[in-house]
Computed example of a mutant assay.
Amino acid sequence: MTKYQFSADQIQWVKNVKRAGGTAWAYFGEGMEWEFNLNFSDSQKLGAENMGLNEVVLLFQRVDSVPGVVTQTYLTHLVKPLDNELIYNADTPLHPWERRVAVIARADPRTSIYTHADDLSFYKPNWGKVCPIQLLNDDLTVHQIQQRIVALFQNCFCGLSEVYINNITLTKVENTGAFLSVGSVLPEFLKFILLILLPAIVLLTGLSFILSKAKLSKLTIVGAAFVIGGGMG
Results as ranks from 00 to 15, higher is better:
residue 125 P to Q: 06
residue 16 N to D: 13
residue 54 N to I: 04
residue 98 E to L: 11
residue 95 H to S: 07
residue 93 P to W: 00
residue 82 L to T: 04
residue 63 V to M: 07
residue 135 L to E: 13
residue 64 D to N: 13
residue 36 F to P: 01
residue 53 L to F: 09
residue 48 A to F: 02
residue 137 N to T: 05
residue 79 V to S: 08
residue 116 H to N: 14
residue 23 T to F: 05
residue 79 V to N: 06
residue 142 V to T: 15
residue 33 E to R: 12
residue 70 V to D: 11
residue 47 G to I: 12
residue 25 W to M: 05
residue 81 P to F: 05
residue 51 M to Q: 14
residue 50 N to T: 13
residue 98 E to R: 14
residue 86 L to Y: 03
residue 43 S to L: 10
residue 120 L to P: 00
residue 30 E to P: 10
residue 39 N to M: 09
residue 53 L to P: 00
residue 61 Q to V: 02
residue 71 T to S: 15
residue 16 N to G: 14
residue 115 T to A: 06
residue 113 I to C: 03
residue 119 D to F: 05
residue 83 D to A: 08
residue 62 R to N: 12
residue 115 T to G: 01
residue 71 T to W: 00
residue 49 E to P: 00
residue 58 L to R: 00
residue 92 T to L: 11
residue 101 V to R: 08
residue 70 V to S: 05
residue 140 L to N: 10
residue 66 V to R: 11
residue 32 M to K: 12
residue 29 G to K: 14
residue 72 Q to T: 15
residue 26 A to C: 09
residue 40 F to A: 12
residue 136 L to Q: 01
residue 128 G to C: 02
residue 134 Q to A: 14
residue 63 V to G: 08
residue 64 D to L: 09
residue 134 Q to W: 00
residue 109 P to S: 03
residue 28 F to I: 12
residue 55 E to P: 01
residue 31 G to H: 04
residue 41 S to M: 03
residue 53 L to H: 07
residue 38 L to V: 01
residue 49 E to A: 13
residue 59 L to Q: 10
residue 127 W to M: 14
residue 67 P to I: 10
residue 75 L to R: 04
residue 83 D to K: 04
residue 59 L to A: 00
residue 38 L to Q: 13
residue 30 E to G: 08
residue 116 H to L: 08
residue 63 V to P: 06
residue 112 S to I: 00
residue 23 T to M: 09
residue 84 N to A: 13
residue 131 C to M: 15
residue 79 V to P: 03
residue 131 C to L: 02
residue 66 V to I: 12
residue 79 V to D: 05
residue 20 A to H: 11
residue 70 V to C: 01
residue 25 W to F: 05
residue 87 I to P: 00
residue 91 D to V: 11
residue 56 V to R: 07
residue 15 K to A: 06
residue 56 V to K: 04
residue 95 H to Y: 15
residue 135 L to A: 02
residue 27 Y to V: 06
residue 94 L to Y: 02
residue 121 S to N: 15
residue 61 Q to A: 13
residue 110 R to E: 13
residue 56 V to M: 07
residue 109 P to W: 03
residue 64 D to H: 11
residue 77 H to C: 09
residue 42 D to M: 04
residue 96 P to M: 05
residue 79 V to C: 04
residue 17 V to M: 02
residue 29 G to N: 13
residue 81 P to E: 06
residue 39 N to W: 09
residue 81 P to H: 07
residue 85 E to A: 07
residue 44 Q to A: 10
residue 20 A to S: 14
residue 52 G to K: 15
residue 68 G to C: 05
residue 35 E to V: 05
residue 38 L to Y: 07
residue 126 N to L: 15
residue 55 E to T: 04
residue 105 A to P: 07
residue 17 V to K: 03
residue 138 D to H: 10
residue 73 T to H: 04
residue 78 L to K: 03
residue 108 D to M: 01
residue 60 F to M: 04
residue 77 H to Q: 08
residue 114 Y to E: 10
residue 92 T to E: 15
residue 66 V to E: 04
residue 106 R to F: 00
residue 96 P to H: 06
residue 52 G to L: 14
residue 88 Y to P: 00
residue 125 P to M: 10
residue 110 R to Y: 07
residue 24 A to M: 09
residue 103 V to P: 02
residue 101 V to S: 06
residue 36 F to S: 06
residue 129 K to V: 07
residue 82 L to M: 11
residue 71 T to G: 10
residue 100 R to N: 14
residue 128 G to F: 01
residue 76 T to L: 00
residue 22 G to K: 01
